[in-house]
Simulated scan of single mutants.
Amino acid sequence: DAGAGIIGGYNECAFLGMGIGQFCGGPETKPTVGVPNKNTAVEEVRLEMVAPRDKLAAIAAAIRNAHSYEEPAVDIYPLIATHTATGQGRVGKLSRGVTAATLIAKIRKALGVDKVLVAGDPKSRTKVEIAAVGAGSCGSMWKGAAAAGATFYLTGEMRHHDALAAAAAGLTCVCVGHSNSERIALAKLAARVKSTHPQLETILSKIDRDPFQIV
């Protein structure tokens, strides 16, 4: 109940390993097995579970409260992602080549914005075959997009010199605003939270807006 052992839609996920535990309690201890001042070896089960970082303290407290030992051993190991080929953004090949102007029009309609910032030539007749996207403050990732073969890059915001360099390299960069580039994912994120945590009330904001206005 403290929050450990949850992986996706599965609960009570754990790995159990049998082994021999050894200990020697001091004169003031009250061991569950054995007596003080004497080495004791007993069969034990090592229980491993994943746990969210923000619930570690509550989970450790629950283990100590439920365990029969005076001093149960609780080890916490941070997990490190090994998917080094997975980055923050995405690069994809379009089903058919289209102009930058066509893509910009689709982006404005999908995001519900009237204006966007464009670095590069928005009226170029060259067809875009490969496009990249990096939401939020991913403007500095334009080099990765270009290296992957993209000629069109959609992001939230971009620094002045990054925009100049990207345009000089032949990349058309479109900045739609930080929150505008992320808000489109909220509905899908809310649906995912509802499916994985049905016990929680999920509320999708109706007042969230970009803090900037073009006047």
Rank of each mutant, 00 (worst) to 15 (best):
I76C: 14
L186H: 06
A145N: 05
R209L: 12
T99W: 00
V45K: 04
L56Q: 01
R159N: 15
R209K: 11
G5K: 04
D121N: 15
T86V: 14
G112Q: 05
N65E: 13
A100M: 03
Q22T: 15
I107A: 06
R183C: 07
V113L: 06
P27W: 10
L103V: 09
S195T: 13
A61N: 12
I7A: 10
C24E: 15
G120L: 03
A167W: 01
C24A: 14
Q88I: 10
R90F: 09
A58C: 02
L154I: 08
S137V: 09
Y69E: 08
A146P: 08
S95F: 09
D208Y: 06
S179Q: 12
L171K: 04
I107Q: 04
P52V: 11
S140E: 14
L204D: 13
G3T: 06
G87Q: 15
P72V: 06
E28H: 14
K188A: 06
G26H: 09
S195I: 10
A191E: 12
A165T: 03
L189Y: 06
T29H: 06
I63H: 06
P27V: 14
S195Y: 04
L79G: 02
S137L: 10
P36T: 07
V215R: 06
H161P: 04
P78G: 12
V174R: 00
R53M: 10
G3C: 05
A100F: 00
A51F: 14
S68E: 12
L47Y: 13
K106Y: 09
L111S: 07
G89V: 11
L200V: 11
T172Q: 00
V128T: 04
C175G: 12
K194F: 13
V98P: 01
I20C: 14
S95L: 12
G149R: 00
F212I: 06
I7M: 09
H67P: 03
G87M: 13
A168G: 13
A57I: 05
I80F: 10
G19V: 02
G8C: 02
R46Y: 11
I107N: 07
T172H: 01
E70F: 01
K30H: 14
A168D: 14
M49H: 07
G21Q: 02
D75K: 15
E157Y: 03
G120S: 10
H83C: 15
A2M: 02
